[in-house]
């Protein structure tokens, strides 16, 4: 494991825990897209089915369990515990417009036509676009709480660090996975506009708000 992969994983972990803590501490999930969070739970569920079939390392298993647990806890907080604060009126992105095409693509373009491999591919494709309802929600309301922008930055940074990890692995291990790389590029590109706003506004102490 190289340093980019490790910091990528840690950045992902920070993002997930930051969101969970924010909701827990404020007792509110206002401004958070439940649809994005349900899709992330679906991403982890379909990707980590190999927890039961393929042991890699204690690190690998522990991280998978943490990601899964936090992801389900987040969905539980949004749709059950703090349901009253959920901003459903602004969370209007049609999730089926992502899930159905992504499912079709996973059937057509995969490494191996087996159930586990198709589900893994589905999770990679879905992850690349799962943030869209959240970004759409911010565009719609025109603003985001600063802590939410820190969450988004850490989440976007994770895949960007994975991209560097894949370049590293290609040079030093001769390893590459085209499905993960293409989806990872798409995923990172979706955050570019947000990264720009984060760096020019949030890091200068301003709240992220979009012009009306």
């Amino acid at each position: 494991m190289n340093v980019f992969r490790l910091t990528g994983d840690l950045s992902h972990l920070v993002a997930i825990i930051l969101l969970l803590l924010k909701i827990w501490k404020t007792r509110s999930c206002a401004g958070i897209s439940g649809k994005s969070q349900v899709m992330f739970a679906l991403v982890f569920t379909t990707r980590y089915l190999d927890l039961f079939t393929n042991f890699i390392s204690p690190y690998n298993s522990v991280m998978k369990v943490i990601y899964l647990g936090c992801s389900y806890a987040t969905v539980y907080m949004i749709y059950m515990k703090f349901k009253a604060s959920y901003d459903g009126n602004h969370d209007t992105f049609r999730a089926e417009f992502l899930i159905i095409p992504v499912g079709g693509l996973a059937f057509l373009v995969n490494h191996e036509f087996t159930p586990l491999e198709i589900l893994w591919t589905f999770s990679i494709y879905l992850e690349s676009v799962a943030i869209l309802p959240q970004l759409f929600m911010i565009t719609k309301t025109g603003e985001a709480e600063t802590i939410t922008t820190h969450y988004l930055f850490a989440l976007g940074l994770y895949r960007a660090l994975y991209l560097i990890n894949w370049i590293w692995r290609y040079y030093f291990e001769g390893f590459f996975d085209l499905i993960a790389i293409v989806a990872g590029c798409v995923q990172t590109i979706l955050y570019c506009d947000f990264f720009y706003l984060y760096i020019t506004k949030v890091l200068h102490g301003k709240k992220l708000s979009l012009p009306a």
Partner: peptide, 10 residues
């Protein structure tokens, strides 16, 4: 193999 290497990522 490629499959095994791939699955070590999260």
């Amino acid at each position: 193999s490629e499959q095994n290497t791939k699955k070590d990522e999260l």
